[in-house]
């Protein structure tokens, strides 16, 4: 995403310290990560000390301060998915992508995340790729799914 879009998001909330989380969320969802310059600008335009911006940006797991891959893969490891074998699905995906949960591959193609029940407990194990849910995964099925994004 270009800097203009980030600027526009920030400008819309200028002077409103209470919008801090909203602004960060918007940048995160449009840009998939929040560059340091953007954080500095948020601090300046909203009138919030930079330390507070950093406190929020580093506390909430949703915010990423490093660039993310083109496709975001999320493996649910909530309870239901766990007892139905999500660990095996995660292991498979980790070995396929050559990265661990929380990492992005070297050519910025995939980012992998785990955890956080996504509310599809009835149909676990579940993975989500770029917002699209895939239910009743097995290691083999997960491999098929990932092929679609290659």
């Amino acid at each position: 995403m270009d800097n203009d879009t980030i600027d526009q998001i920030i400008d819309r909330h200028e002077g409103r310290a209470g919008s801090l989380i909203h602004v960060l969320m918007e940048i995160q969802s449009k840009n998939h990560w929040i560059p340091r310059e953007a954080l500095a600008k948020v601090s300046q335009k909203l009138g919030v000390p930079f330390t507070r911006v950093m406190q929020i940006a580093t506390f909430y797991k949703t915010f990423s301060l490093t660039p993310q891959g083109h496709h975001e893969v999320h493996v649910c490891t909530g309870t239901s998915c766990h007892i139905r074998g999500s660990q095996r699905v995660l292991d498979k995906i980790q070995s396929l992508l050559g990265i661990r949960a929380g990492e992005t591959d070297s050519n910025s193609k995939f980012s992998l995340a785990k955890g956080n029940c996504l509310g599809c407990c009835t149909l676990g194990p579940e993975i989500v790729v770029d917002g699209r849910h895939y239910a009743r995964m097995t290691p083999e099925k997960a491999e098929e799914v990932l092929k679609k994004y290659n």
């Binding site: 909530g78 309870t79 239901s80 956080n116 029940c117 509310g119 599809c120 407990c121 009835t122």
Partner: peptide, 8 residues
């Protein structure tokens, strides 16, 4: 918020 895993 419904953050409890297993609640939907």
């Amino acid at each position: 918020h419904e953050g409890e895993p297993g609640a939907f």
